[in-house]
């Protein structure tokens, strides 16, 4: 039976892991490769490097990290952040990464996703959707209506979410809102060739308050490609809820693993006891 996946996520800035594994005897807590090895030994199912380096000129740094990681750690590796061109993707895949995660570039040009999928195969194209609850405005169902952006930004950022609500997508780490319905966008991305969706709730991200289960479930049921839930994990029960109630295929978590609140294996033992299919070695 296919196991639900537990995926630690590491933020990498200028070649260094920020907020990485703490309270562990890593010789160098900022070293991405050591962090990756740590999670490999813990039985993580995949690993994601999120490159938050601001400058596009420094892309060779992440390539170097991927190369070194791929020499040492033999598990699926996804890299997200700052991917703008087909060459960026090719370079990452050649360096030894298996999937790339695309967000802003997909919103700027949805057909970038289809070109990438055609060239490299859907299996390595992950579309990252950052979604935020907004008041129940009627969105364009094609997901292509992005006029009136400023107006929406006002609405989204100033008004508290209320019922009826929907989810709009955002880019640039939640700083920009788009007039695009997140569920429709997920469908569209699947149609254009995305192989997987990495779904982050911008309302829940960093809260440790639990994933947005309704959002996760809405997208997971709308598409027929795997969905990784992200944003808000604070307890093991949150992981369970995202997988069981949110119907996610995988859960991404950062701080609960980095700060050693739980190991990946502990999380899996908990999930297995609650009837979730996980891979335990």
């Amino acid at each position: 039976m296919l196991a639900k996946r537990i995926i630690p996520c590491l933020d990498v800035k200028d070649g260094r892991v920020v907020k990485g594994v703490s309270f562990v005897n890593l010789r160098d807590a900022g070293d991405p490769v050591q962090n990756a090895r740590f999670y490999d030994e813990q039985g993580a199912d995949e690993l994601i490097f999120l490159d938050i380096t601001a400058s596009h000129e420094k892309r060779n740094i992440i390539l170097d990290i991927v190369r070194k990681t791929a020499e040492d750690v033999f598990m699926p590796l996804t890299v997200g952040g700052g991917i703008r061109t087909l060459d960026d993707i090719r370079d990452l895949l050649k360096a030894g990464c298996d999937k790339v995660s695309i967000n802003t570039s997909a919103v700027k040009d949805p057909y970038f996703v289809s070109r990438a999928a055609e060239k490299f195969g859907s299996q390595c194209i992950v579309v990252a959707i950052d979604a935020k609850r907004v008041p129940g405005i009627q969105f364009d169902t094609t997901g292509e209506d992005w006029f009136d952006e400023e107006d929406l930004q006002e609405v989204c950022l100033r008004m508290p979410p209320r019922d009826p609500f929907t989810w709009a997508i955002s880019t640039h780490g939640g700083r920009t809102m788009k007039r695009i319905d997140a569920v429709q966008w997920g469908r569209k991305m699947e149609k254009l060739g995305a192989g997987e969706i990495m779904l982050t709730s911008m309302d829940k991200d960093g809260t440790k308050d639990g994933y947005d289960i309704e959002l996760t479930r809405a997208i997971s049921e709308a598409v027929s490609i795997p969905v990784i839930a992200s944003g808000g994990a604070g307890t093991l029960e949150h992981l369970y809820d995202a997988l069981a109630k949110g119907k996610a295929d995988a859960v991404l978590a950062a701080s609960i693993f980095h700060y050693r609140e739980y190991t990946v294996n502990e999380a899996k033992e908990y999930l297995r006891a609650k009837g979730i299919s996980v891979r335990l070695s």
Binding site: M1, L2, A3, K4, R5, D45, S122, Q123, G195, E196, S224, I225, P226, D249, A250, R279
Partner: peptide
Amino acid sequence: DLKVPHMGWNT
């Protein structure tokens, strides 16, 4: 009636 691609760890 399951997600495709078949992606992840299986026995």
